[in-house]
């Protein structure tokens, strides 16, 4: 069981062709620049995650929508929106919104951080489990866009001028940034780095 890297081979990140690696060489099939691993993968992932962490605070505590009715504005945060849904009796939808807008962004940031820390300190965590966790994080990340789409539909539909208007609040931009940054963090993380450190050890764990 040997990796392509140990044999001086690189898998092209664009087309998947395996070819001999030389510094600054191009893939013979698709002309993309060849890399053994994504350059600066860990640094970039950390940078995106830390920025996402910072934006997570305004995203959760500032109002995400403002309901303006006859000159009176009622602010709504993500969490108060979830409570409102429970009060209306749609618990199922409340769970979907809670998972997509609060749990997923947080779990994504914490999950990728755990993986990065475990690589840094060479912790003995099952590789398969970590990869499974990363794949799950990668797949579920796009569902955080749900709340933004809902806001865009609500804003478009409820527009009665002076009577009743819904306006996106400052948290909406912060939330959009959190979603974007966590997507980029997952995209920039090279899963092969997880397997590199225990190349010589038993791989079955």
């Amino acid at each position: 069981m040997e990796s392509a890297k140990n044999n001086g081979l690189a898998r092209c990140h664009e087309c998947g062709l395996v070819c001999r690696f030389q510094p600054n060489s191009q893939c013979p099939r698709c002309d993309a620049k060849l890399h053994l691993r994504q350059p600066h993968s860990i640094q970039k992932t950390w940078a995106y995650l830390i920025t996402a962490c910072i934006f997570l605070i305004p995203a959760n505590f500032m109002p995400i929508t403002l309901l303006v009715s006859q000159g009176k504005a009622t602010p709504d945060t993500i969490m108060s929106g979830v409570y409102a849904l429970i009060d209306e009796g749609s618990t199922g939808i409340a769970i979907i919104v809670f998972v997509a807008s609060i749990l997923v962004p947080l779990a994504k940031i914490v999950g990728i951080m755990i993986i990065l820390v475990s690589i840094h300190f060479r912790l003995k965590i099952s590789h398969k489990l970590r990869l499974l966790m990363f794949k799950f994080i990668d797949w579920i990340g796009r569902w955080s866009m749900l709340d933004l789409f809902v806001i865009s539909i609500m804003v478009a539909v409820i527009d009665k001028g002076q009577l009743l208007v819904i306006v996106p609040g400052p948290a909406a931009t912060a939330f959009a940034l959190v979603v974007l940054l966590t997507l980029l963090a997952a995209k920039n993380f090279d899963t092969r780095l997880m397997w590199d450190m225990e190349e010589d050890n038993d791989w079955t764990n």
Binding site: G16, V18, R20, M194
Partner: peptide, 18 residues
């Protein structure tokens, strides 16, 4: 630029040579 063995492939997630 030379290719080694055209049919050789590598896993995109763990870089195992296959």
């Amino acid at each position: 630029m030379t290719m080694t063995k055209p049919q050789l492939s590598a896993c995109s997630h763990c870089d195992l040579l296959i």
